[in-house]
């Protein structure tokens, strides 16, 4: 606990994002601006890493395959641009960073789902 923690914590979202784990397939709802209009874009993929526990600099990385090419996006957990997160499937993994998925394609990149 540091002296000015509360000032820093103002940067955090009032309500936490949905609980998600490493390896989960998620829909990240991102607010994007097109000219004057704002709309929500969904980025669907696998959470392969999470960096930082609390604080404004905490991020998570979502990986997906677009037209055969791997795409990764890093989202700051507390960014006001990340408006929501929906967990699609939960999986069971044994490590915190799933960077090994980068070297795998197709069935080899499948993770063990938690059923029920």
């Amino acid at each position: 606990m540091n002296k000015h923690d509360d000032v820093v914590n103002k940067a955090l979202r009032a309500k936490p994002l949905a609980v998600f784990g490493i390896g989960d397939t998620v829909d990240v709802q991102v607010l994007i601006r097109e000219g004057e209009k704002e709309r929500i874009q969904i980025f669907n993929g696998t959470v392969i890493a999470r960096r930082g526990k609390i604080g404004p600099s905490a991020t998570f990385t979502v990986r997906r395959i677009v037209q055969g090419e791997g795409v990764e996006r890093i989202f700051p957990i507390n960014s006001p641009k990340v408006v929501g997160l929906v967990v699609k499937t939960r999986v069971s993994v044994r490590r915190a960073k799933l960077f090994y998925l980068r070297k795998r394609v197709g069935k080899a990149a499948k993770l063990k789902e938690i059923i029920g």
Partner: peptide
């Protein structure tokens, strides 16, 4: 001087 921190602006910049 106190600590440094990051804040998000309304338009989402940090």
């Amino acid at each position: 001087k106190g600590r440094m921190a990051q804040l998000f602006t309304e338009d989402g910049r940090c």
